[in-house]
Design a protein around this nucleic acid. Structure first.
Length: 850
DNA sequence: CGCACGAAAAGCATC
DNA sequence: TTTTCGTGCG
């Protein structure tokens, strides 16, 4: 077999030492240079925030290729997100004329998918297996629970899904789970049934992609040998975020004994792991920071390189980050430095209310924008999504364009999922999840009763819903038959059509398009369906599924082929060309439709809010990881918010919160704002919080307080409250300002190009928080407590709700509730660090702080 | 199959 | 503002 033919022949890389190679290393600092040009041995790169991690990773790949140490097919690079993978491919192709598309660079799941496509038979999967996203998985679990006649109250589908995913991420099949209590035993039974169901339907969930690949490598020596021979270099990005299974997976592809000085025989592999323990913020979803230390030990890492030079932020920002993270005990140890000079101080702002905080932020951001900063260079970060609403409201009312990350993504939208369900049924009518999703959508007279019967029948015979329709008699049965006919007809009618034509045909014959045409909110949905057609078109072009696409058999394993195929004409193994590895035996690649469905599951797409416009960026700190902005606002720096109350009780949780804060700080290039508020409306209740301990952990010299330092907590609020009272806008006036509308901002995509000028309606048109009519512009006092304040003022002990107090044992706190009077008087005080406490006022020594 | 409106969450979120 | 779910109607 011949090596595939490329225009830019990757098998003739620039000769080592040629100008090209030297140019690759140009401009790297000594540590980066060292990392990029390390010998082929295990290496751990501790890459601080903004230290050029991606550059090192991609240059390392380019360097390995350019110096002829490895062929494009001989290396694998793994990331967590599609974004990171794309970025790597993009940069790489800018550095070297290399056919990046066929290279094994991708997300863990994407690569597993590719692997399982090639070895589907060995893996015990149907050739066209489809992937369940989180939502599909949830409905699949629900069906299982129902089928087992279990109580959904006791076995909450979400929790069960989570349980199953967690087990898989620990590498445990049902029989491996140590189930001691009856509850867990039932969970395991559900897990078992769920697996059987998935297998029957020919679908796999995300965790299954990983686990199956791992198991296949573990149980198939020939396969293992093959891949270990093939991948001489494996690079892992964001290593601190790997979970147990991912690390074990890695060890299957490149076991420690094959690496470095322990390499056995001719088999010599190198793993290049890049990570930052200080940015490990995903323990809650199974990430094991400990993998870094394990890796260092198990692989006997001799090359540990720290990238501590930061090219992103000015000194004050870095000093703050360094000082903060120094409070963590569990660290590998790292300190960021810059040559950029101190830059501006970090600005700190104390607000009286979340509303006031939002107003301040709005003004400040507007100022920055007027000063010439693009809105897209301004980021507003918060710990939890619930915090975004006040700020959205403020921005919206001022007509400032903004973009909120983390909403519904394209392929998760209901109408898109419906469309995909039809397409999946065309591919595989036994996909019960998809069947149930659209069997009666648009409605075709198939009710719950009929579906019950159908599901019973299917359960009895162990067959799919599609296969069981004949078991249902009567009108319902006839309608079911009709639906099956629709799917069959669609499959016939679309045979041989292009992907675009298939989708268009489906949209028309399924009735989806007609349905949304008559629905009043349907215009958006139709646009999204059109967008789906575009996405498919783009996919076909981009992935080379056009008529010129060549299917080249690669990675076939079978007797006698292993040794042979390792070497191409010049002693280098050929790289796969097809985007998805073809069947290992036949070389057959998936149909464009099946491939597109896979793509849709593995890549949920962007959430499309406000894409393309210069808008202020709003997101949680988690989603900000990996991004950078000229100006960053970190808001809601309050105890119980950030650090979050659920994480405050144990050190591990607290340290993760601190790393989260570290990530947040290091997003800023030039200007960083930190803000907190004395009062905050959260879940309909006013909370009185103490400022975050993280603020106290920053170096005073790097900070500049925009509001008076050490102002008594609550005092500012109290003053404004009194003023408002005197103005006659007391409780009566303020009460109405409480938010009535609980919806997240759901804007209509307006047709005009110039959105953000007040045409969109985030609160469905109703007055939001401070919509301007009856809410005061500043100092909108918290509502329910206003009354309580008035009462408390009369009760003699001189305390008010919202009052800042000092307690000899617990320190600073804020009064959040007052009850009783005289000797009975008691107060609930939130001491932040110590949490809220009830105190008898006749005993406790509380000093008002003012 | 009973009843009502609205609605989606209480922490972060990749694939 | 308080609790729990899914979806649409008589």
């Amino acid at each position: 077999m011949h090596a595939p033919h490329f225009h830019d022949d990757p098998f003739s890389p620039p000769a080592p030492g040629a100008g090209g190679t030297a140019r690759l290393l140009e401009g790297l600092n000594p540590e980066q240079h060292a990392a990029v040009s390390l010998p082929a041995e295990p290496a751990l790169i501790l890459a601080g925030a903004g230290s050029g991690k991606t550059r090192v990773l991609t240059t390392r790949i380019a360097w390995l290729l350019a110096t002829g140490q490895v062929s494009p097919g001989g290396l694998m690079a793994v990331t967590f997100t599609n974004k990171a993978a794309k970025e790597m491919l993009h940069r790489l192709s800018a550095m070297l004329p290399v056919p990046v598309r066929g290279m094994w660079i991708g997300t863990f799941h994407g690569l597993c998918n590719r692997f399982l496509r090639a070895h589907w038979k060995l893996a015990g999967l149907p050739q066209g297996f489809q992937i369940l996203d989180t939502g599909d998985q949830l409905s699949a679990v629900k069906r299982v629970i129902k089928a087992m006649n279990l109580d959904e109250q006791r076995f909450v589908p979400k929790q069960v899904s989570w349980f199953i995913a967690a087990r898989k991420e620990e590498g445990e099949r049902p029989s491996d789970v140590d189930a001691r209590d009856p509850n867990t035993r039932t969970m395991v039974e559900i897990y078992r049934a769920y697996e059987e169901q998935c297998q029957r339907e020919g679908v796999v969930d995300f965790a299954e992609l990983m686990l199956r690949t791992y198991e296949l490598m573990r149980d198939q020596p020939a396969l293992r040998e093959h891949y270990q021979h093939r991948f001489a270099h494996i690079l892992v990005d964001e290593f601190q975020d790997t979970n147990r299974l991912q690390y074990r997976w890695l060890k299957m592809f490149a076991p420690p004994e094959n690496t470095g000085e322990r390499a056995r025989g001719t088999l010599r592999q190198s793993v290049f792991a890049v990570g930052d323990d200080d940015q490990s913020i995903y323990a809650f979803r199974g990430a094991q920071v400990g993998n870094m230390a394990d890796f260092e030990r198990e692989y006997r890492v001799r090359h540990l390189i720290k990238l501590e030079r930061n090219y992103r932020s000015f000194g004050n920002i870095l000093d703050s980050a360094n000082a903060l993270i120094a409070h963590n005990s569990k660290r590998l140890g790292k300190n960021l430095s810059t040559e950029a000079g101190p830059g501006e101080p970090v600005r700190v702002h104390e607000a009286t209310s979340d509303y006031a905080e939002a107003q301040w932020l709005l003004e400040e951001a507007q100022g920055l924008h007027r000063g010439g900063l693009a809105r897209s260079e301004i980021a507003i970060l918060y710990r939890s999504n619930a915090q975004s609403r006040v700020m959205e409201s403020a921005l919206f009312n001022a007509g400032v364009p903004y973009r909120v990350y983390g909403g519904l993504r394209f392929f998760e939208r209901a109408e898109v999922k419906h469309a995909l369900a039809y397409l999946r049924l065309v591919e595989n009518p036994n996909d019960d999840t998809s069947y149930l999703r659209v069997v009666n959508f648009p409605t075709r007279g198939i009710g719950a009763r009929t579906l019950e019967l159908l599901q019973d029948a299917a359960r009895q015979s162990g067959r799919s819903l599609y296969q069981s329709v004949s078991a249902v008699a009567g009108k319902g049965g006839a309608n079911l038959l009709g639906f099956n006919g629709l799917i069959d007809g669609l499959r016939e009618a679309t045979r041989g059509l292009t992907l675009r034509e298939i989708i268009e045909k489906m949209l028309a014959t399924s009735g989806l398009l007609d349905f949304y045409r008559t629905e009043k909110e349907g215009q958006d949905r139709i646009e999204n369906l059109e967008e789906l057609v575009n996405a498919a078109e783009a996919f076909v072009t981009q992935e080379g599924f056009g008529k010129d696409a060549v299917a080249l058999p690669v990675d076939e394993i079978g007797p006698g082929t292993l040794a042979d195929r390792r070497e191409g004409p010049d002693g280098i193994a050929p790289a796969p060309v097809a985007p998805l590895a073809p069947d290992a035996e036949t070389g057959e690649i998936m149909s464009p439709l099946a491939a597109f469905l896979t793509h849709a599951a593995l890549e949920a797409g962007d959430n499309q809010a406000q894409a393309g416009q210069d808008a202020i960026q709003m997101m949680t700190v988690h989603s900000a990881k990996g991004l950078e902005f000229d100006a960053v606002f970190i808001t809601g720096l309050e105890e119980s918010l950030f650090p979050h109350e659920n994480a405050m009780s144990d050190t591990d949780g607290l340290e993760e919160e601190r790393r989260l804060m570290y990530v947040a700080i290091t997003r800023a290039r030039k200007r960083l704002y930190l803000s907190y508020s004395q009062t905050r409306l959260l879940h309909g209740q006013t909370r009185y919080n103490v400022k975050s301990r993280f603020l106290d952990e920053l170096p005073e010299g790097a900070l500049k307080w925009l509001t008076p330092r050490n102002q008594g907590f609550g005092s500012g609020y109290a003053k404004e409250y009194q003023q408002a009272w005197q103005r006659g806008t007391g409780p009566g006036g303020i009460v109405g300002a409480g938010r009535q509308d609980n919806r997240p901002p759901s804007w209509r995509r307006d047709s005009g190009g110039d959105s953000g000028d007040g045409k969109r309606v985030p609160w469905g048109g109703r007055d939001g928080y401070g919509a301007g009519r009856d809410a005061p512009l500043t100092g909108g006092g918290p509502v329910p407590t206003a009354m309580a304040n008035a009462q408390a003022a009369k009760s003699g002990h001189g305390l008010r709700v919202g009052q800042a107090v000092f307690h000899t044992k617990f320190g600073e706190g804020v009064v959040i509730t007052l009850e009783g009077s005289g000797a009975d008087a008691r107060a609930q005080v939130n001491f932040g660090r110590h949490g809220p406490k009830w105190l008898a006022l006749s005993v406790a020594k509380l000093t008002p702080v003012d």
